[in-house]
Computed example of a mutant assay.
Amino acid sequence: MKAELNLWIIFFIAAAAQGLFLSFILIGKNPSGRSSQNTLALLLFTFTLIISYYIVFWMGISKDLPIWLGIAGNLTYLLGPLVLKYAKQTQNEDIKSEAIHYLPFLLISLLIPFQAHIPIVVFPILQIAHLFIYVALLYAFIKTKSPNKWLTKLLFAFSGYCLCFLAYYLLVWLGWLKVEYDYMVSLGMSVFIYFIGYSGYTQPYHSEKGHKENKYAKSNLTETALVWIEKKLDQKMEQEKLFTNGDLKLQDLADTLEVNLHGLSQAINVKKGKSFNDYLNELRVNEAKELLCKQENKEATLLAIAIDAGFNNKTSFLNAFKKFEGQPPSQYRKSILEKRFQ
């Protein structure tokens, strides 16, 4: 393929420049160092490098470049982890075991010197599988959240990018498209990625800390009062285990503690750093862990453990346990039993 410069390539050069510009303005909009905006900027910059690599390929000069620059062709392995990380950061959550998500990129990149000995079809299949795994992970994460229009748009945009990527290789494998002429597919991918960038730029940022500060900006409660409520709450929960009541409401708890409803809510949100439901569920999970460790509960069902800990059903118990412990209760119980018999 001879080096050439046509209208399509000129268009994508402009698109790459646009991506670079957008990456910088996302960082420029982020003087306070917000992590989600940094991740979004990195996502856009990564895609800009991918587009730049395509341009070099289309112009027919990629073969004249050092072989290690082929790493740019593997940058698609970073898009899924970055999109998922960005989504979680907008909800004030960190991606667990983050390094693992970037391991495929590292491993595939190490194979670059040996790629001539590997069937060429292997690489796009791995890329496609990797992308759609992250579509599924993003969908699973969004499903755990209350309806969020931006996260839904993010899912559709990233899914659109992945479908374009899949469509390109299907067309090539079917013989309907030459491998070097994927302009329309790349255009579709660019649209979806830059939609995420520009839409993300206009998204208002709400950190958990900022949300709490704004919510309680007009509160008359002093720090001393909040500490007093928190201490009273801790003592009551430890002594009477009120959380084991599956029907416990915030108002019921406020009445028991003889404190103001809004004051109790503020103490839990600000001092505990979590919602009322998360506060209760974490206490219930800790109680369930103690119950699972007791010899007399060795044959008890998980539902029985869940009810005793304060959960109303097995599903909410399983979801909460995995959220706070990173593993299902059955696996936790098994590990405890294995340690005892070692």
Rank of each mutant, 00 (worst) to 15 (best):
K322L: 13
Y168S: 04
G80N: 08
A267I: 02
A306D: 08
V135I: 14
G33I: 10
V185T: 11
A116L: 02
V56Y: 03
G33L: 09
K334M: 13
M189G: 15
L221C: 05
Y198W: 13
A136P: 02
Y86R: 01
P113R: 13
I125A: 12
N38V: 00
A72P: 02
I336C: 12
W8F: 15
A267R: 00
E240C: 10
A15D: 00
I25D: 02
G188K: 05
I51N: 02
S52K: 01
V56C: 11
W150H: 15
H262N: 05
L69V: 09
L226R: 12
K149I: 07
L154Q: 06
E287D: 08
I50P: 07
K2G: 08
L131P: 01
F141H: 11
L79W: 00
L107E: 07
F158P: 00
Q89F: 11
G273P: 03
A167Q: 05
I61N: 09
V185A: 06
W176K: 10
V172Y: 06
S186M: 13
I305K: 00
P204N: 09
S330E: 13
N313F: 01
L78M: 15
L318Y: 04
L40S: 06
K249S: 13
E230Y: 13
Q266P: 01
K323Q: 14
I268V: 10
Y201S: 06
G246Y: 10
F321I: 06
L40I: 10
S265W: 13
Y139G: 00
A16Y: 03
I50W: 01
I27K: 15
T39Q: 05
L155E: 05
I305R: 02
T48Y: 02
S335Q: 15
R34L: 08
V179R: 00
T224F: 14
